[in-house]
Simulated scan of single mutants.
Amino acid sequence: MRIKGEKLQIMEDKIVSAVRALADSINSGSNVAVDMSALIEVTSELPLSSFDYWERFIRSEFYSARMEASPLKWEVCSRTKELVTWLDLISFNGYKREEALQALSGAAPNTFFFSLATRRLNDWVPQVRKAAREKLPDIARSTDPKYVVDALCVVLSNWNSWGRIEKEEKEVLLNVICEKEIAKCLRARLVSSASGPMASLFSQLGRTPILDGQIEEIARSAIQPSVRAKAYRSLFEGRIVWVEGRRWVWTDIRYCEGRLKPIVGERVQEVKTSLLDLLERASEDRSSIVRRVSAEILIRELDNLGSKARVFAERFASDSSHSVSERGDFALKKLDELERANVS
């Protein structure tokens, strides 16, 4: 814990130094573009998993640094049009956040700053959300696709918890996803990432057409077993399923008892490969997670596979994974029951 605390302190010190340097250059009253290179460098090192913390920390430090300007500097600033920077996207002032979105153009300098712009789609001020809807597509098209994809991987895993984002804002993000280069990078990320919430990302990307015709390749090549399992399930079922959100359902209103029920969406997929071929591939996958999915599908499709059903059932029953073998045993029992019923 001590080492972790030391690393956190070092990072905070770097950010404070970079933020104060930026604030000093703005407070000088010069109309020349400010140098954000130090802040860009340090924010490029920040983990997106702690984004909320760093956004609050940087906002607080930037505000404090601006407030420490001498009266003379504030007098100079009042006579000149104040420069707008990317940090104004997290200003305490909603008018400043809106102004920043309207004024900024060109590429976001790194993933952190593109994430700042993206999060304005969930801003508590409606006018800021409107400005974000209008400007984010242009910013995304200008920004390095890697930065955009890094940000989207986090956003799409968490946006169901955003309390203010609405259908219009989600449509903006879905359109960004469909940009050619961004879509290409997202598909590559699904296949190549060894960690992260890629299975959840796969489901959310299923809202768009960017995975159409690509799911079999993902099922074969994705590094993460959970992604391959999701892809195979989508092929078996002919659809991609995702969670839209959650709504409260009363289970016993007399005692004020209830639970959050997932709201599920789906998109139909055209699958050209036969069920037998898909079962063959999935049953030979190196991960038991994928083999278990194929065993579940076997049980569901026992009546439609003819003599091949027993071949697969025996293969699964002898699997080294207990979760797979128990499904194989169940399939064999069901086949025996069907045979006895047919004989009688």
Rank of each mutant, 00 (worst) to 15 (best):
P209C: 08
T208S: 12
K167Q: 11
D123M: 07
S49I: 03
G265C: 06
K230M: 11
T118L: 15
L302R: 05
L305G: 00
A219R: 03
V290W: 01
I299G: 03
R187N: 07
L276V: 06
V76N: 05
V16M: 10
I26L: 15
C77F: 14
S287N: 03
E314P: 03
V268W: 13
V290R: 01
I139T: 01
I165G: 05
S142I: 06
S30E: 09
R141S: 04
V34F: 06
F312L: 04
G5K: 14
F57D: 00
D285I: 02
L276T: 02
C185I: 14
W86Q: 08
V149A: 01
K272H: 14
D285Q: 11
T111L: 03
R247V: 10
V155M: 05
N93T: 14
I165W: 04
V290F: 07
L279E: 00
S105P: 00
S78K: 15
F114G: 04
A222N: 00
D52N: 13
A309G: 00
A183V: 08
V76G: 02
D13Y: 14
A108W: 01
R233F: 09
M198S: 02
I90M: 00
E12L: 14
R133I: 10
S49K: 12
W124Q: 05
D252E: 09
R327E: 00
F312G: 00
C77E: 09
M198N: 02
V32L: 15
V125I: 15
R327G: 03
I3M: 14
L173F: 01
F112C: 00
Q214N: 11
K146C: 05
K7F: 14
F113G: 03
G213S: 10
E45S: 06
S25K: 15
D212T: 08
R291V: 02
R2Q: 10
N175I: 12
H322P: 01
L305Y: 09
R189E: 03
S200D: 11
R97E: 04
P137Y: 13
I240N: 02
K167A: 04
R129Y: 07
Q224T: 03
G163F: 14
W248Y: 11
S307N: 13
I218V: 11
Q9C: 12
Q127G: 08
E99I: 11
D138R: 14
L235E: 00
F330H: 11
A282Q: 01
W159P: 01
N342P: 09
Q102A: 12
A151C: 07
S17A: 14
K7Y: 13
E296H: 12
Y63P: 02
R327I: 08
K130A: 09
I223W: 15
V76E: 05
A107K: 08
I182T: 01
I297F: 12
P209V: 11
S49F: 09
S91H: 04
V311Y: 14
K7E: 09
D35E: 07
A183Q: 01
W248R: 06
E12I: 12
R286D: 07
S288K: 14
A23C: 06
I210F: 04
R187G: 02
K184A: 10
D138Q: 12
R340E: 07
D212A: 11
G265I: 05
Y255C: 08
K14N: 06
T85Y: 05
A100V: 08
E337N: 09
A313L: 10
C185Q: 13
I58S: 05
S60Q: 13
K81M: 13
L104K: 05
T118M: 12
K130S: 03
S221F: 15
R133Y: 11
R246L: 08
